[in-house]
Amino acid sequence: MTFNLGLTGSIGMGKSTTANLFAAAGCAVWDADAAVHRLYDRGGAAVSAIQTQFPDAIIDGRVDRQVLKGIISKNPKALTVIESIVHPLVAQDREGFRRTAEADILVFDIPLLFETGGDSEMDAVACVTIDAETQQKRVLERGTMTLDQFLHIRQKQMPIKEKTERSDYVIVTDTLDHARQQVGVILADIREKIANA
């Protein structure tokens, strides 16, 4: 039996680091953001469809995410068009992983898991969380976005309180050791469920 675990959380809460902890513990991990990068890269499945709609977004044979962001900010309808291209391709990529991954526990690292209804495809959901102050500090320390951009993204995401309430497991990412310990507890619980299934 294979167990499908959704992993989610809001921006800057330690989801990628936690996904790596699951991978180190023997789980197979599928990363939604990495899938989009593959689709946008040279030869990626989304390139020609996006080129048809937004030719300016293709630079050197790949989708330029910065140009795409600019197009979306000028034309809000563009996001709907892009999502209609990308979402089915991401779902295809996810299914390919599900068919070929060789592990008892498959972890699906999906930032907008609840927002997109992806939780319905999971056997359980784990949500990472941290206090708002630490979250903001982590994001701004990356140096990839302004405070306004961060607040805009956070506002679009489901409140973390609601995400944690809807999740089967909650992982507090205050320290790496604490997160690793919680991942261990979750995996022991899941493996016990698999053994008793």
Rank of each mutant, 00 (worst) to 15 (best):
F3D: 06
L5Q: 02
L5F: 02
L5R: 00
T8A: 08
G9S: 08
S10I: 14
G12Q: 07
T18S: 01
N20L: 15
L21G: 00
V29K: 01
A34V: 11
A34D: 13
R38V: 14
L39M: 10
D41M: 08
D41N: 14
A46V: 08
A46C: 11
V47E: 12
S48E: 15
Q51D: 09
T52A: 14
T52D: 13
F54V: 02
F54Y: 11
D60Q: 14
D60K: 09
R62F: 07
D64V: 00
Q66H: 10
L68K: 00
I71N: 00
I71E: 00
I72G: 04
N75Q: 12
A78S: 09
A78P: 02
A78C: 04
T80E: 14
I82E: 02
E83F: 02
E83I: 04
I85G: 06
V86Q: 06
P88L: 09
L89M: 13
L89Y: 04
V90N: 03
A91V: 12
Q92H: 12
R94G: 08
G96E: 15
G96R: 11
R99F: 07
R99S: 14
R99Q: 15
T100P: 05
T100V: 12
A101K: 00
V107T: 06
V107P: 01
D109T: 03
I110H: 03
P111H: 01
G117Q: 08
D119N: 13
S120V: 15
E121R: 13
I130V: 15
I130L: 15
D131I: 03
D131V: 04
Q135R: 10
Q136H: 10
R138K: 03
L140R: 02
E141D: 15
R142S: 07
T144A: 13
T144F: 13
T146K: 07
L147F: 07
D148L: 12
F150Q: 11
L151E: 15
R154T: 08
Q155P: 02
Q155F: 09
M158T: 09
P159N: 11
I160P: 02
I160V: 14
E162P: 03
K163D: 08
T164G: 06
T164W: 08
S167Q: 04
D168H: 13
D174Y: 07
T175S: 15
T175C: 07
L176S: 06
D177M: 09
R180M: 10
R180H: 12
I194H: 04
A195I: 03
